[in-house]
Amino acid sequence: MNLVLNFDWLTNFLAILFVVACLYDARYDEYGTLTLSAAAMSLAVMAIEVFLRPAFEMAL
Rank of each mutant, 00 (worst) to 15 (best):
M1C: 04
M1K: 09
M1H: 05
N2F: 04
N2D: 06
L3F: 01
L3E: 03
L3R: 08
V4Y: 02
V4H: 11
V4R: 13
V4D: 04
V4E: 09
V4I: 11
L5R: 09
L5T: 01
N6I: 02
N6C: 05
F7C: 07
F7N: 02
D8R: 14
D8M: 04
D8E: 15
W9D: 13
W9H: 14
L10K: 09
L10D: 00
L10S: 01
T11R: 11
N12F: 01
N12R: 15
N12L: 12
N12C: 01
N12M: 05
F13W: 14
F13A: 09
F13I: 00
L14Y: 00
A15M: 07
A15P: 00
A15S: 08
A15H: 03
A15I: 01
I16M: 12
L17T: 05
F18N: 13
F18Q: 15
V19S: 09
V19P: 00
V20F: 06
V20D: 03
V20I: 12
A21T: 02
A21S: 11
A21P: 03
C22Q: 11
C22R: 14
C22S: 06
C22H: 07
L23F: 07
L23Q: 05
L23S: 03
L23D: 03
L23C: 06
L23G: 02
Y24L: 10
Y24K: 07
D25F: 10
A26G: 11
A26R: 11
R27Y: 12
Y28D: 01
Y28H: 11
Y28R: 13
Y28Q: 04
Y28N: 09
D29N: 15
D29C: 05
D29A: 04
D29L: 04
D29S: 12
E30R: 15
E30S: 08
E30H: 12
Y31F: 10
G32D: 03
G32A: 02
T33A: 09
T33V: 12
T33M: 10
T33E: 09
T33K: 15
L34M: 12
L34W: 10
T35R: 14
L36N: 13
L36H: 12
L36F: 14
L36W: 14
S37A: 12
A38W: 05
A38K: 10
A38E: 01
A39V: 07
A40L: 13
A40M: 06
M41P: 00
M41E: 02
S42D: 10
L43R: 15
L43M: 14
A44R: 12
V45S: 01
V45A: 08
M46G: 04
M46S: 13
A47N: 08
I48W: 10
I48G: 00
E49A: 13
E49H: 13
E49G: 11
V50F: 15
L52F: 09
L52V: 06
R53M: 04
R53V: 06
R53L: 09
R53A: 04
A55Q: 12
A55G: 02
A55T: 10
A55E: 05
A55R: 15
A55P: 00
F56W: 11
F56V: 07
F56A: 13
E57R: 15
E57S: 08
E57M: 13
M58P: 00
M58V: 06
M58G: 00
A59R: 14
L60H: 08
L60Q: 11
